[in-house]
Design a protein around this nucleic acid. Structure first.
Lengths: 123, 123
DNA sequence: ACTTTTAGTTACATAAACGTTACTGCCAAT
DNA sequence: ATTGGCAGTAACGTTTATGTAACTAAAAGT
């Protein structure tokens, strides 16, 4: 997420985007709504994210205070992530996004069939 | 928004992010919930977006069927954008984001004061 | 001794996203 | 004749975001 210029943005949506605006953040947070999840399990549940990016995004979410990292000193290591109090406040947004995504994909696919874009395929 | 790999994502949040996941899209859509707005007015209300990016984002939203572009053949030209039927379904997400942003910013600012990150300033 | 497991990190590379500046066409007003 | 307003577009450059592959530690299992 390219950062917004700081100064005087009064738009609440800008604030929201500042903290959960990354490509993966809402998806990661969505995995945590039902309680703590370990790193490896997140990586499996979100197959298309690389471990490096997952690490980075988790670190940012932790720095912003949206999630809490629990590192158990075991071998092999065990690390769990869970929503913090602030993180819980994001749940309504995640719920709305979940609700929306279920409907929208079908609707837009239908729309694009009736109003097709440029065709880039080779004949 | 870097695109997701297509194939078999069943996560609804991924679908949502595919369509409104850009830095500016939720902000633009938020400006349209109260009815059609012309291009120039959008540019003023979202001061930090360049006209080029605004144009691009509007075009993508139109191609996805989330907004409708009305071009009135006048001189000087007048172009208005409004939410489509599909676009209306995004409103709950925008409302949740608006609600969230209002609270979250204060909470996170407070959090960061108590758990400061690395200090990059020069003393 | 060797492999496995977990949660990463490091180095490197590419692709999107985003931005700036300058430019267009057309009519009306000055 | 020149200027101003509107809604862009074109060319170009920068910056993030994201990706891949290889590597680490330390204990337990075989």
């Amino acid at each position: 997420m390219k950062k917004f210029k700081e100064h005087t943005s009064t738009c609440p949506i800008v604030h929201t985007m500042t903290y959960i605006g990354g490509k993966w953040k809402p998806i990661i947070l969505g995995r945590l709504v039902n309680g703590a999840v370990r790193f490896g399990k997140l990586a499996v549940q979100i197959p298309d994210i690389s471990r490096k990016i997952l690490t980075e995004q988790l670190k940012e979410l932790e720095e912003d205070g949206l999630i809490i990292r629990h590192s158990y000193n075991e071998k092999p290591p065990r690390v769990e992530y869970e929503l913090s109090g602030i993180g819980q406040t994001v749940i309504p947004v995640l719920m709305a996004m979940t609700e929306l995504g279920a409907q929208m994909h079908d609707a837009i696919t239908k729309h694009k069939r009736s109003v097709p874009g440029k065709d880039h395929s080779i004949h």
